[in-house]
Amino acid sequence: MNKKKLGYKELPAGDLLEAGTALDFETGSWRSDRPIHDEEKCINCLICWAYCPDSAIKVEDGKVKEIDLRYCKGCGICAQVCPPKIKAITMVEENKAEK
C-alpha cells in the first residue's frame, strides 16, 4: 500500500474506513503453525469455514478448496472444530511445513 496519506481536511469525518480493507492486510505473515487440510478425510461439513476468524477457508461448489495462507494466522481453530472422528486438518510448525 503506497497510497498517499490523507490530511484532516480530506479524510472522511470520524474514524471511517471503506468496507473490506482487511483484504489489504495479509495477516498470514503472523503464522507460526500452518493448517494442513486432507482432502480425502474431509467430509465438507464446513464447520471450519464458519469458525475461521479470517475467512481463510476457501469453499467452491460446497467443498473446502484450500486454506488461503495469505490471511491464515495459524490460530488452529479450524483444526479444533474439525469433528474428532474426521480430523481432516492438522497443525504443523511453519518451519517444518512444505514450502
Partner: peptide
C-alpha cells in the same frame, strides 16, 4: 449522510487508528 445499516454503502467505523491517522481524526 452515512450509517452502518446502509448496506448499499458499507463502511468500517471505529477501526484501529494508530500513529498514521489518529491525530488527523482528533484534529477533525
Amino acid at each position: 449522510e452515512r450509517y452502518l445499516l446502509d448496506i448499499k454503502k458499507p463502511y468500517t467505523l471505529g477501526s484501529l487508528d494508530l500513529q498514521d491517522y489518529f491525530f488527523e481524526h482528533r484534529m477533525q
